[in-house]
């Protein structure tokens, strides 16, 4: 009985001793291009993955390359970047910055001349309004867009879907990009980047 008391006291003492060594969070620098999956939220790695996927898709699209060659020849088309609309549950996502990452890669590729888009401009507002209307008439866009500087407008949407059964939580993100041709009023390219994350509660624990 006495021995067990002594052992218990020693183990308690050791716990307190080692517990005291934990002085604070372990902070270290990491590479910004490394992948991290910490939560089911839309994180930095998802941000980078979406950028890579969308720009790769756009630059490698043979259909778009053919259309550009046919319509513009040696001239580099001018592209304006519209908004990336956030339709996810996380309203604080800096999607403007995702747009900047896409713009950087498009500028570096030399495939487009990229211009900033004046979102307060009346022509821009009208064009975007027409584009958001699923039944838009390409001729109407062309009428308004005739005065615009840009040949293309790139727009995006991020959506989020969630499912859970109490044990497993499934989160799905889809980023859609549309490239509107202002001269023909048609969508010349469109693609989606998808991310799916699952969080499972352990069989033991709470």
């Amino acid at each position: 009985m006495k021995t067990s008391h002594i052992l218990f006291s020693i183990s308690c003492g050791l716990c307190i001793l080692f517990g005291g060594c934990v002085s604070g969070p372990d902070i270290q620098r990491t590479r910004p291009d490394d992948v991290r999956t910490l939560t089911t939220g839309f994180g930095a790695s998802d941000f980078q993955q979406c950028t890579n996927q969308m720009v790769d898709s756009m630059l490698s699209s043979q259909g778009l390359t053919n259309k550009l060659a046919k319509q513009f020849g040696d001239k580099t088309p001018v592209l304006a970047f519209g908004l990336i609309e956030n339709r996810s549950y996380n309203l604080g996502l800096p999607l403007d910055s995702l747009g900047d990452s896409v713009k950087i890669r498009l500028i570096n590729s030399g495939k487009f001349d990229v211009v900033e888009m004046d979102m307060n401009d009346e022509i821009t507002q009208n064009i975007l309004k027409m584009m958001d209307n699923p039944g838009y008439n390409p001729a109407d866009v062309m009428n308004v867009a005739g005065r615009a500087v840009q040949d293309y407008i790139l727009r995006g949407y991020l959506i989020e879907l969630q499912e859970t059964n109490g044990v497993v939580k499934d989160v799905y993100y889809k980023l859609t990009f549309k490239l509107f041709n202002m001269r023909t009023g048609k969508i010349d390219w469109m693609d989606e980047a998808e991310i799916r994350k699952t969080a499972k509660r352990g069989a033991i624990g709470w």
């Binding site: 590479r31 910004p32 291009d33 490394d34 992948v35 999956t37 790695s45 993955q49 570096n108």
Partner: peptide, 10 residues
């Protein structure tokens, strides 16, 4: 080209 600018993908 552009070292460190293309992130790893999972």
């Amino acid at each position: 080209l552009y070292p460190g600018k293309r992130a790893a993908q999972q």
